[in-house]
């Protein structure tokens, strides 16, 4: 029995890790290729830069991972990120609130957007695509209304989130790591995390096993909203200003990262580590293409092709192992 497992168990651990995780293998191949093509790629500064580039997408993608595991989709995260950042900046400047209070309000805004999404989906029975598409419009619109269409400067204290610790470790990378660990713990260890997998795998079976479907969807989309708020704050800190048009289209990067990381859009599958790898692949690719001076127009083409290839390879690999 289990011929394949026996073969793998004789291989070094790294090799089996790569074999089981197509995305990680792709990331390694990409990194090796780029370090051969460009001498600048493998420097510490550049790698940390890649980490900063990946951070916002990764944090959004961690939030999207919960949603995608339940078989849903959240198109509103980019807009919610912008709205949360605008609310923070506006509260701390125009409304004159202390920055920690403003930060809490921003997180609550993200959370609230997620809860509204969930309520529309779980109790209003709207398809997730439609509910979150509507939220995308509303959140982006509110961001423009509150900011009157112009960027708002971030309070200095919050802008330090875009800095480095000890002039070395960028804070966005640290936040990304923390959010990643939180996601892994929530998914693997908590009741809600396990319920998300069951929900995405078979909602009716989950319901008949006593999982309260509506309540778990509230948790799922609320997490997605809160993670979007964190991503928005990190992005605005890096830019030192909250911009109403920030993070446009990031929801698609986030979804791409989750799917590249091995999750299934039909639900029931997905892991925090896979999502991290997915976000890193996108960031490494953009960084590498910049280093190789590929034009921004061609970069979009290449990234599109890579997304298709990554998921295609993963699908073929799974089909092959039946």
């Amino acid at each position: 029995m289990l011929v394949s497992t026996n073969v793998l168990s004789r291989q070094p651990a790294l090799r089996s890790l790569l074999a089981e995780n197509g995305a990680l293998a792709a990331l390694v191949v990409l990194a090796v290729a780029l370090s051969l093509l460009s001498g600048d790629f493998l420097s510490v500064t550049n790698l940390l830069n890649v980490g900063v580039q990946a951070a916002v997408t990764a944090i959004l993608a961690f939030g999207a991972t919960y949603v995608i595991i339940t078989g849903g989709i959240d198109l509103s995260v980019g807009a919610v990120a912008a709205l949360s950042a605008i609310v923070l900046a506006w509260s701390a400047t125009s409304a004159g609130l202390p920055w920690p209070v403003a930060m809490v309000i921003a997180l609550v805004v993200g959370l609230a957007c997620g809860l509204i999404n969930a309520a529309l989906i779980a109790y209003g029975k709207l398809p997730p695509f439609i509910a979150t598409l509507a939220m995308l419009g509303v959140a982006r619109g509110l961001a423009l209304v509150v900011s009157q269409g112009s960027p708002i400067a971030m309070p200095d204290a919050v802008s330090h989130l875009g800095d480095t610790i000890g002039g070395y470790l960028p804070v966005p990378v640290l936040v990304m790591a923390v959010m990643g660990v939180i996601t892994a713990v929530v998914l693997n260890r908590t009741y809600s995390g396990r319920a998300m997998y069951a929900l995405g795998g078979n909602e009716e079976a989950a319901r008949l096993s006593g999982i309260k479907v509506g309540r778990q969807k509230l948790v799922t989309y609320a997490l997605s909203g809160a993670f979007a708020a964190v991503a928005g704050i990190v992005l605005a800190s890096r830019l030192a200003s909250a911009q109403p048009q920030a993070a446009s289209g990031y929801e698609l990067d986030a979804i791409a990262a989750v799917v590249i990381g091995g999750a299934s859009l039909s639900g029931g599958k997905g892991r925090a580590f896979g999502t991290l790898v997915g976000a890193l692949i996108l960031a490494v690719l953009r960084n590498g293409l910049n280093l190789l001076s590929v034009s921004a127009f061609w970069q979009q083409v290449v990234i599109g092709v890579v997304i298709a290839l990554a998921v295609l390879l993963d699908t073929l690999r799974r089909r092959g192992s039946g």
């Binding site: 908590t190 009741y191 396990r194 319920a195 997998y197 069951a198 795998g201 078979n202 009716e204 079976a205 989950a206 008949l208 096993s209 006593g210 999982i211 029931g268 599958k269």
Partner: peptide, 23 residues
Amino acid sequence: GQGLVLGADVGENLGLVTLRRAT
């Protein structure tokens, strides 16, 4: 269609009803 989460493993399916109790 209603009894199992087909994509999940044996252990997870067996533990579905007792998930709350094990929390």
